[in-house]
Amino acid sequence: MGKFIVIGERIHCISPSIRQAMETMTPDPILKRAKEQLDAGATYLDVNIGPAEKNGPELMQWAVKLLQENFDNVPLCLDTANQKAIEAGIQVYNREKGKPIVNSADAGDRISNIDLAAANDAICIALCSKAGVPSDNDERMMYCQELLERGMGLGMEAEDLWFDPLFVVIKGMQDKQRDVLEFIKQLADMGFNSTGGLSNVSNMTPKHIRPILDATMVAMAINNGLTSAIANPCDVRLMETIKSADIIMNHSLYADSFLEL
């Protein structure tokens, strides 16, 4: 098993400064966010350009080139509802440091994103859901199988499907947290890669509480076999926890300075 993969989530058009930078194609705010996340230990960077209905392909190509040219072909996770934009992004993507990730497909309206990933030799995040949050793990597993069959039918390697169990918010769905952990175990037992939006867990909790909830959840999830998360690498507590978990799981060899790596 390799080290846990953090997909940095902070290039997101919900952030006002990033949204403005994307509207005007101004590099600086985006480069700044990228550098912060890479310095903090992110492996992949998520590039969320929103729905981008007007200029999606152009915007995604600009963002991919901007980030890869400035950060040694950093691997990217292309995140938008606009399929044409994802395809356009992959066209200019350099694979030297890793395949592009398509974010994301589900078993409902967005299932064709699997086709897109298969056609472009990309990794695909596969949400084990159809419309909304699945009610239990049987439902999650049903969607997982649907997505797997679709991908395999199109010639994808199973390892290129990163299944997302759907992390759910503690405030409101506290009783479902153990289901998520159990499902991650099921995915790991089948040998699948997994990822997910970790910070959903602590959504709507006070700012100073979020790091400890996210960190604890990720440690428990890594123990159950989670291989990646879309998360905020600038959260020091979270990153220290992930690095320590990698040591305890023997995914990375211990050295006294391991937190600095």
Partner: peptide, 14 residues
């Protein structure tokens, strides 16, 4: 000592 081997390389790279 594998841990020291790695640590020394880290320190030198730093």
């Amino acid at each position: 000592d594998i841990n020291l081997a790695k640590q020394l390389n880290v320190l030198i790279s730093q």
